[in-house]
Amino acid sequence: MSFINYAQREIILKIVYYGPGLCGKTTNIKFIYSGTNPDARGKLVSLETKQERTLFFDFLPLSLPAIRGFKTRLHLYSVPGQLFYSASRKLIMKGADGVVFVADSQKARKEANIISMEDLKENLDAYGYDIDKIPFVIQYNKRDLPTKMSVEELRADLNPDGKYPDFEASAIAPNGPGVFETLKAVVKQILVELKKTK
């Protein structure tokens, strides 16, 4: 649910990063933080356990230039990936304008990707949303690892009909290929969708 504040002249869009445990959702958010102009970013809130697992959520506010006189602000959230944190994951989904699914390219995480995608569909369904009707982008992360699956195999598991835009990425690499492309794609989809619904 986008938030428009006419008094402050700003539009706020909520984007949620979803995916299996340790797939790199927090790494995506941290890379975006480090790659963004300091004037355009707020404080990064990261609620992690000692094992680098996100306990509740990560949060990063970003400011983009104004459109039609309205400042565009992005609120990026990443949800906890581990299955046992499903209660807090569901809460963060509420009010999301767009979703990025971060898949782990490693062979060993094939099943975890599929379970997480099913879980996402269930959570969206719980709020009355349909994955085919919301701004949704898939990112195949960890493309730098030797144990990676082919993109064709990942697509067959997660995007068999090619309905969703998808990107290859390596969020941990110094130049983070694919990270900003993924973010831009989902923001663009949200704005195009908002334009259509008005």
Partner: peptide, 21 residues
């Protein structure tokens, strides 16, 4: 009177990302 999104053009959307990242 305040149809904000209806006024947004494709160019507006593309230009959003020029400066921030």
């Amino acid at each position: 009177d305040l149809d904000l999104f209806g006024e947004i053009t494709d160019d507006d959307i593309d230009s959003l990302f020029n400066d921030a990242f």
